[in-house]
């Protein structure tokens, strides 16, 4: 490869054309607006916005977040203003930018997932839908749908029936056979899968012998879960033909490259956005630099290039 030419880091994924493979993960970047002062949103591969329900949802009581070694545990409980507010108040802002918007969708019933998907189907500025079937912090919906293959099949199929938008089920890290779940998603019309969501976790205050979080349990994210997520992405990528979006504890380009080499077509930066909002843009630069250094012309050649010999 000619050293003077820039490697092609664009990605075609689930019918989307991304300038680069680095997205920001749902729940860690609000609706884009929150970080628009600090981050060039047009430089992101895509924005996965905070999970949206049909109706406004209050979420959990506080405390909702606790920091642990190498990560944090959150139990926000999917607080969101509802799909109509999102369409009216948040989406127009995002439409000003040249960046695909992937809307994270959540329902308490299969019907609710389908309703939100149907409502967003024809909205200009929505590039794809990520189905949240893996949130550990809500009593109904979330992980309840993602931990059972028959339920997962129903959610994906119900969404598929009402929208032509690309569908990306987001899988939990606590599935024993993640490849099987990825296959279920694929067989029922998913265009890609994203993984992983947070890992169910708990912190106990030993003085009071009570859980620190009001919700008692939460989801662990951050560098602590990165190696777990890399292995799961590898398993999922081996099981399906649809693309895999890798996420879990990315703090730098090397973390992202592990996912890509393991088989991810794209990645998402999550928890790191909180401390370093520029992380995704830095990861883009780092991936480009790595590809130049290792002689890769295009990202496709790097995806799944793991050498297990």
């Amino acid at each position: 490869m000619n050293a003077a030419t820039q490697p092609d880091i664009s990605v075609k994924l689930a019918g989307l054309e991304l300038k680069n493979p680095v997205m920001v993960a749902s729940g860690t970047f609000g609706y884009g607006r929150e970080y628009a002062d600090l981050v060039d949103l047009n430089g992101l591969g895509a924005i996965m916005v905070k999970g949206i329900l049909m109706e406004p949802w209050e979420g959990n009581r506080t405390p909702r977040m606790v920091e642990v070694r190498g990560g944090l545990i959150n139990a926000i409980g999917l607080q969101n203003p509802g799909v109509e507010y999102f369409i009216k108040e948040e989406l127009p802002f995002l439409r000003q930018y040249d960046v695909p918007v992937i809307v994270n969708v959540w329902g308490r019933t299969i019907d609710e997932y389908a309703q939100v998907c149907a409502r967003l189907d024809s909205e200009p500025g929505v590039a794809a839908l990520e189905l949240n079937v893996s949130c550990p912090n809500v009593k109904h919906g979330g992980l309840a749908f993602g931990a059972d293959p028959a339920m997962l099949a129903q959610v994906v199929k119900a969404a598929r029936d009402v929208t032509k938008l690309p569908l990306i089920p987001k899988l939990s890290p606590q599935l024993f056979a993640i490849g099987e779940f990825a296959k279920v998603a694929e067989a029922n019309g998913a265009d890609a899968v994203s993984l992983t969501n947070t890992l169910p976790a708990m912190v106990i205050d030993v003085e009071t012998r009570r859980p620190v979080l009001a919700n008692k349990i939460g989801g662990l994210s951050g560098p602590a879960i990165h190696p777990v997520a890399v292995k799961l992405v590898r398993d999922a990528a081996c099981a399906v033909k649809i693309p895999v979006i890798g996420m879990g504890g990315i703090e730098n380009a090397a973390d992202a490259l592990e996912f890509i080499i393991a088989g991810a077509s794209a990645v998402a930066v999550g928890t790191a956005n909180f401390s370093e909002p520029q992380t995704a843009l830095q990861v883009v630069d780092g991936i480009r630099e790595y590809m130049q250094r290792h002689g890769f012309d295009s990202l496709a050649g790097l995806t799944g290039s793991l050498n297990m010999e």
Partner: peptide, 16 residues
């Protein structure tokens, strides 16, 4: 004063 995450309104940890 509430325990804060991102500080910029994105994470919804410090709500009151």
């Amino acid at each position: 004063d509430k325990h804060m995450g991102c500080g910029g309104g994105a994470c919804l940890a410090c709500v009151t």
